[in-house]
Design a protein around this nucleic acid. Sequence first.
DNA 1: GTCTATAAGGAGATAGAC
DNA 2: GTCTATCTCCTTATAGAC
Lengths: 225, 225
Amino acid sequence: MAKRTEACRRTKILDAAENAFADCGFNGASLRDIVEGAGVNLATVYYYFGSKNGLMEAVLKRRFGPLRQEHLDVLRQFEREAKGRPLPVEKILEAMLLPPLRLASAPAGKRQAVTRLMGRILTEPDEQTQEILRGQRSEVRAAFLKALQTSLPKVPLADLQWRIEFVWGALAFILCNPRKIELETHGACNPADAGKVLAEMIDFFSAGFSATASHRKPQPNFSIT
Amino acid sequence: MAKRTEACRRTKILDAAENAFADCGFNGASLRDIVEGAGVNLATVYYYFGSKNGLMEAVLKRRFGPLRQEHLDVLRQFEREAKGRPLPVEKILEAMLLPPLRLASAPAGKRQAVTRLMGRILTEPDEQTQEILRGQRSEVRAAFLKALQTSLPKVPLADLQWRIEFVWGALAFILCNPRKIELETHGACNPADAGKVLAEMIDFFSAGFSATASHRKPQPNFSIT
DNA sequence: GTCTATAAGGAGATAGAC
DNA sequence: GTCTATCTCCTTATAGAC
């Protein structure tokens, strides 16, 4: 029973923290807000997680570990079904987008902060946050890059790399602040409808991926730092 | 001379704040860091801007006002050149992407935080921040939506709306943390080369925009909150 | 207009009773 | 294991001298 209490409290804190970080960012969310949301004492956080950084690390690991696994699993599953032929780019995109979008929808009635958290985290400046994710993401990234290379041998590697970034970027943006999208489009786009989001993204990006060579003229040398 | 001093100090504070907000987000950057960076006294900020919120508002307005204007100008210029014919989608994309990318490169030798700030701001959760931008962005958004409708009459309006979000999202992601992109791709993608970024994005997204109908099967009803 | 000094409160973190 | 009380530091913001 002590065990059950423990799991329960830990989980409650993680849930509350996930929500708070998603809404306010890591710096914006205070531990005091979090413990209030979780209905526990401030000291409890330190008992279980040691520090605010420790808490954030736990929040990220709880979600991104399984997500990474699912990304790899789904891709492998699709490849098995293709029986050695290269995957259509639509399938690769589905494997990229389905796990994060599905993660959002797990418990039907309950509000899920995971997706907002994911969007937030992908754009968070904090070095430590990035560090935690880099290991996770690099493996997934490599797997998808390889799949894309196989399916689109004519597209230069560097182009594929850029395009992967564009997809993650668009995804992060949608996940990050769904309410903003809804407001800006006056309701025409509803990010809550994940099935629709998936379909839109696959249509849009699969066409982009199949584009072959760059036919732009080189631009004057201006640079972003 | 008093005037010059004033302008100088105000500007120095704005520059320092821009950098700090871009690097650490609004919550993460403290006024004390900012005044240190600007080489002025803490009270000076309150004299010129009234509060931290006031400072942020000034930082945003300094950049996003002209950017909005340039967005509209470039689009109008292209439309004039087209002499009444619908713009090719590549041109519309160029009008969307060139101003923010060019903004980044204004002073050659000097580090510019504008772009990182823009990326950050597009994903910042803070309500007040969003409020400030909404007015600015809605006009620009409407102009581009109209141009796209004219050029791509067969693509349903809702699809165009989604696709605009995807483009902004990808752009924000690239601008937001250029260093991360460079690390993740092991140098294959260099966001500092804005000309290359522009070319890559136009190639990729123009193909996507021309995609017509959604041929996905509807997904099970899962939803993002 | 500019600075020093300080207020007032919130933050993360810890000591120690139970 | 859990909670109360508290420490210390840093934050935004202001009052008031010059």
